[in-house]
Design a binder for these strands. Structure first.
Lengths: 332, 332
DNA sequence: GGGGAGTCTGACAACGATGTCACGGGTTGG
DNA sequence: CCAACCCGTGACATCGTTGTCAGACTCCCC
């Protein structure tokens, strides 16, 4: 900016005025300055400006999702990005990998870069460590999983209810021996989905004794192995509820390999690309991750604009998409 | 930092020393300072530090991909993130949406935030506007598409050769009436894949007169419609080469709807999730997007570490994955 | 012609941190 | 016993920008 000023033959404050579109600069000087800016390819340093600027906004936000390469996370990311880019806000994106240490590290990295707000998926047992930051005025919105130990906005899917709908759907097709394939129990959504599933079985009067409830599946391969073991086991299920997208993929592969895909019913939680084209097409409880991201960003910006209404959770409804795999009847 | 200093009863420079792990601070003061840091929940402002710090690194990088929600882009993102997070570097991620204005806007937003380097997918006709920035020392690595008008590192797939392999594969199964379904011709990869495809037909002595070469497909729906039109047209192809992942999905759907999926061969460029489980499973030319991202980050960091070897392109090989759809023979 | 208001401009302090330097005190060695 | 050195420490200038303020003009109206 110094250089621009001297090249244009004006004071640096005048350059600042032109660059920021402040009033009270004559046309002539404005032209001179803009020409100098062009010649020197000058880009103002946003952070230096923010140092002095009142209000102090970096126009930057930190987003932490499960894994940027997972379609569910990627859709959240896209939802956030669309809302952010409308407002000229840049997005830091990181993957959690369900690692509590990573959560802390990423949050800290974001904070040191003075993001205006955080949108977080969490893996640690408690997010109480964020309380001071919240009190300092940094808005935080949790996505996918509700926080523990702090009061803040959260946008989550209708996990328990969606799982219950899946269970009911399978029960209504004559199944009682339904296997549950879930993610690691430390994960909030995994617990919620399991809870919804188990409660619905209870309502239907089906005992979970003797049923296979498998937790701790962390990717498609572990899910495939677990499904394979179930199918080859002493009491193979007549239906499966797979509670996460990668788990569904693993389950589908195992069903194929055991030639059981036309015999064993399957409902997955979270939609899967090309699910409609498989044979049978896969019935799923679909979430709306892009909407989760969009709403998270909307809430964040509302907080930044001074919204002080009490924090709350927003539950995004899931919906059952009937495609075939979930409608295989129990013929035994 | 002021507050930490006064709470600990030391000078602010001493706090700086402790926070940055500089030597020559007594154990006693270090303890006092750390306690104050803890109490006040102090996080140093990276950008204020960078203002004065010699070398001036924000430990931040800007990544522009086609669309963060597309699996190909998402995998690049993940590759970059893994390399970056190892080095404590945060990643700004944005979507290009093949919009030249967006390209300029995002680059400018990154630059104003003083990223240490850029990893870019581009849509504008020329990237010459980046030359001054390059000369100023900001390293730039292009991914997926080669730049025009500037000399810089680029990491791209083996597009033309991959497309040629696809064409050869279909030809070797007896096809001569092969349709090409491509992205918009402004996109470098689309042109490369088309070129590879057409050249291979030429080598095989197949005239492209009478063949359907469709360009300008920008999503799965437009691809589905185009495929549908071809199949219902006067001279339906016996094989299809779909030159992008969304186009492949659209083509698969159209083939299904026309009950042609067991009759018309299909090879797609870029792998598609669950492709192996479809009937027929989809033969593809697979790219390695995560490796593209990882290598891009590796090159960027090498430049930052002072590598001044001439800029070059790195071509990541593609590989043919035979699954069934591409091996349907032409029986006519 | 003089006073008040409005326009255009730049000098200067300040934002939160680090680089430089100088200072006081302890240790070492001749 | 003193010089030379090292260690721990803080004062101060500085990074690139904006907020504040005051100065120099011009214009207008009584």
């Amino acid at each position: 900016m110094r250089h621009v000023a001297s090249l244009a033959g004006v004071g640096i404050k005048t350059v600042s005025r032109v660059v920021n579109g402040e009033p009270n600069v004559s046309e002539a000087t404005k032209t001179k300055v803009l020409e100098a800016v062009r010649q020197l390819n000058f880009q103002p340093d946003m952070h230096a400006g923010n140092l002095r600027r009142t209000g102090r906004r970096t126009q930057t936000l930190g987003l932490l999702v499960g894994n940027v390469a997972n379609p569910f996370s990627a859709a959240i990311h896209r939802g956030v990005e669309d809302a952010a880019s409308d407002k000229g806000v840049a997005v830091f994106a990181s993957s959690l990998d369900d690692d509590p240490d990573r959560e802390r590290g990423v949050v800290s990295a974001f904070l040191q870069r003075r993001v205006d707000g955080l949108i977080l998926t969490t893996a640690s047992q408690s997010q109480a460590y964020l309380q001071p930051e919240l009190e300092l005025g940094t808005p935080i919105v949790f996505v996918d999983r509700e926080p523990v130990g702090v009061v803040a906005d959260a946008i989550v899917s209708d996990n328990a209810n969606g799982a219950a709908v899946a269970a009911r759907h399978l029960i209504s097709h004559g199944h009682t021996n339904i296997a549950f394939l879930g993610d690691r129990a430390e994960i909030w959504t995994a617990r919620e989905r399991r809870r919804g599933f188990v409660e619905e079985l209870g309502r239907a009067g089906i005992s979970i004794n003797g049923l296979s409830l498998v937790d701790g599946l962390y990717d498609d391969v572990s899910a495939e192995r677990a499904t394979d073991a179930l199918l080859k086991g002493p009491n193979p299920p007549t239906a499966i509820f797979s509670a996460q997208n990668l788990i569904t993929m693993g389950a589908v592969r195992a069903l194929r390999n055991n030639a059981a895909h036309h015999r064993v019913a399957l409902v997955g939680f979270d939609d899967v690309s090309l699910a409609a084209l498989l044979d049978p097409a896969i019935t799923v409880i679909a979430q709306d991750p892009q909407r989760i991201g969009a709403l998270a960003a909307e809430r964040l910006f509302a907080r930044l604009d001074g919204d002080t209404t009490p924090a709350r959770s927003y539950v995004i409804p899931t919906r059952l998409i009937i495609r075939g795999s979930g409608e295989i009847r129990n013929d035994s």
